[in-house]
Design a binder for these strands. Sequence first.
DNA 1: TTTTTATTGTGTCAAATATACACAATAAAA
DNA 2: TTTTATTGTGTATATTTGACACAATAAAAA
Lengths: 228, 228
Amino acid sequence: MKLQYNVPDISITVDCVIFGFDTSKLQILLIKRASDPEKGKWALPGGFMEKHETAEESAERVLSQLTGVTDVYMDQLKVFAAVDRHPIERVITVPFYALVKPENYRLNPSSYASDAYWCDIDRLPILAFDHDEIINAALDALKRDVRLKPIGFELLPEKFTMKDLQDFFEAVLEEKLDRRNFRRKIKGAKILVKLNEVRKGAHKDAILYKFDSKTYRTISKNTFYILF
Amino acid sequence: MKLQYNVPDISITVDCVIFGFDTSKLQILLIKRASDPEKGKWALPGGFMEKHETAEESAERVLSQLTGVTDVYMDQLKVFAAVDRHPIERVITVPFYALVKPENYRLNPSSYASDAYWCDIDRLPILAFDHDEIINAALDALKRDVRLKPIGFELLPEKFTMKDLQDFFEAVLEEKLDRRNFRRKIKGAKILVKLNEVRKGAHKDAILYKFDSKTYRTISKNTFYILF
DNA sequence: TTTTTATTGTGTCAAATATACACAATAAAA
DNA sequence: TTTTATTGTGTATATTTGACACAATAAAAA
């Protein structure tokens, strides 16, 4: 029999703030809870951490069950551990935020979720538990990280225009950026490769770019990489 | 009887990386473990999270039991949850780093620690569990935060010289800074009040400063405050 | 008592970076 | 063919950064 010198009485979950980016807007993937407590309320995808899993593995399981996506950018946030955050048990949760490219996902609500949808960040419904606070923490983390790491490319499609990229920064930072200064800065950072393709639209064609994966590796190693 | 729909089998602890700053060096408070597992090894102060406590409250309890200090700057790091990080049980830990002014502490090793001492950051002994990794994560967080928040003042005594402050930045950032440019930058940030006092030393007197608590509040609200 | 030595304190110039800003080219729709 | 909305580009100015040298001081050594 296994020696157990402490009797745990606190459960541990993971919750995932899964960001998407579509039509110039940040979105979050929400599920409708299929069971009590808070049955029928919208909530973040999550689940109990299992004994054989690390926190990251739990979060990856939650994410892949729901979206079929693996191998995405994830980052852990500070735990939420208010004593009364769960109405029945003592539960602390390890929150993650994840960045999913729109071209990759196909939704797959499973047993614990009766429904799932991508919700615009500025139209969030009332959420279960303290999930609104977790989302705010994830937004703060995203706002911080977008300056320090080239994470825009985890969220945009493979080919994108300068405007797409600028829209992404503006959506995350919640501020307008000057178009010419933006382009100069991005070009100076040497993180883009100009493609011989354009996107046709209602007006002048827009040049398509992709991300330069060689510089990505260089930059990712650097602790600081401040764009804005 | 209380409804319990999940049987938890993972224990939760908190661990504290308690930073001090003395004679121009960053220090960490280590304890010697008084009980198994890893009895006799040096380790971070920590303890099981209790059911009635938040993570912060647990960390404050650990800190005040050991040092008698309350009301210090603390910040939570990412959890450590490797499956085999603890030899007996499944334990995940919520790490914190704390900043303690040297004038405040008086060590108080209690039941779980047979000894405690302030260890220079560049002379760490072999540590129990994964505590060396936790310390590295804390150092990274400190390096990041020192640029974004005026935390130097949580670690320095109330009155200090420009050199003290520069030593602190250099110790945390692990790089040399130009003295004249450093002073210009600090003065520009308007976070210091010049006192009518000097510290006498082996050479020219050094002017003493204290931190301007009014600007502290303003700065702390800002998300970004980059000094270096 | 004089000289040496290590430390504090200060300013300027050049380079890099950030900000503010206007107009021509294009392609679809009117 | 005219209108309209969008893409793409450069310059001038202000701000910030980085490099750098010398006088004042106080103790210690000569």
